[in-house]
Nucleic acid binder design. Structure first.
Lengths: 188, 188
DNA sequence: TTCGATATATATCAAACCAATATAGGTGAC
DNA sequence: GTCACCTATATTGGTTTGATATATATCGAA
């Protein structure tokens, strides 16, 4: 149920990105960057497949100096396929977080190391919130909704960590005391 | 800077999962499931590499009826490598969200379709919050912290969507009115 | 003015990774 | 008794990423 490369390309084409290069930018710096990823190695084969299936058309576009463009256009069949894919049951958001993995070993860290890790994680959330808040020129209602949601949730998330980091540090103290009750013991 | 398979395996070993099968479970159903993924095709080669590098040791463990286990143990060099990897600058959380991608095409959906999508997305957040809240037997402070964080953020996230979905629907109305001002026009 | 960086644009490749399967016996339900 | 699922290692096929190749253009700095 994860969205496949072809669906992601159809979406990007529907959103107005009409070359392989443009589609890549949509996932690298553009509107999709924060919740999907797609690279050239997936995009160009996907466009070829979509072309073979009649879900997109392609006309070469000669340019002044720059390399020739292949301008892709989504067809009606393509829009149907996109709609169908987006209305199918979607798998829930999948997160890949190095910070959380690291935090699960908090009890192995020195206080300063943990503190720096939490600082970075909090900052990451506030930075992303600010970055989202700075975005302008967004035309579609869905994108406006997603940007506001992202910014508000990131701020709440960062605030949560700030408000609860002390509890984590206390819990680590308790954990260490329970496991190594003698401070001057022989076990390192 | 994403954590590689070897680091993830070292972490799982340090956390007490000591066979390839156990490590897989740690990423499928266990403590890492919500923020990292790792499958057999990565785990077994990684364990072999770690063994060759002296970061883990391995002793076969014959069992009653079941297949033989290979019980892996992290070495001191392995713990150093894990520490070093976790203290290196980490890339910020990467999200893969089919829901957000779909929501960015909200203006293309019928009201009922959008409503169902939002319902599912809200439910997904509350369900995850409940699932996290139900977890017990967590021994390390980091994991306790992460579970509380996940549950609280998920609930706040779900609440945000509930409180702002009406604004999205109104925005879509306005968007459509601005683009197709005549309701009885000839353009479908 | 030339150097280095960046942008436009398509395309391919190696390495990494995931999902599924093969293999093989055990356990438990019904 | 057979059907489904659990334990356990290992491999394969297909997908994806990240990097690179190729070619041209712009632009600021040295």
């Amino acid at each position: 149920m994860p969205l496949d490369s072809k669906t992601l390309c159809l979406g990007a084409l529907d959103a107005g990105f009409n070359t392989g290069y443009d589609i890549r930018k949509a996932f690298e710096n553009g509107p999709f960057q924060h919740y999907q990823s797609l690279s050239y190695g997936s995009i160009y084969p996907a466009l070829n497949a979509l072309l073979a299936e009649g879900l997109v058309t392609c006309r070469p576009h000669s340019q002044d100096g720059r390399p020739d463009k292949k301008v892709y256009t989504i067809t009606e069949a393509g829009r149907s396929a996109l709609r169908a894919a987006l209305l199918q049951p979607l798998e829930f958001d999948r997160l890949r977080s190095g910070f959380m993995f690291a935090l699960s070993f908090a009890h192995r860290m020195a206080p300063g190391e943990l503190s720096r890790l939490l600082d970075d994680y909090i900052r990451g959330h506030y930075d992303l919130a600010d970055e989202l808040a700075r975005i302008d020129g967004v035309t579609t209602p869905g994108d406006r909704f997603l940007i506001r949601m992202g910014a508000d949730v990131c701020r709440a998330w960062g605030r949560w960590i700030e408000e609860n980091r002390a509890a984590l540090e206390h819990d680590i103290q308790a954990y260490r005391t329970a496991r190594v009750p003698l401070r001057d013991g022989t076990h390192g």
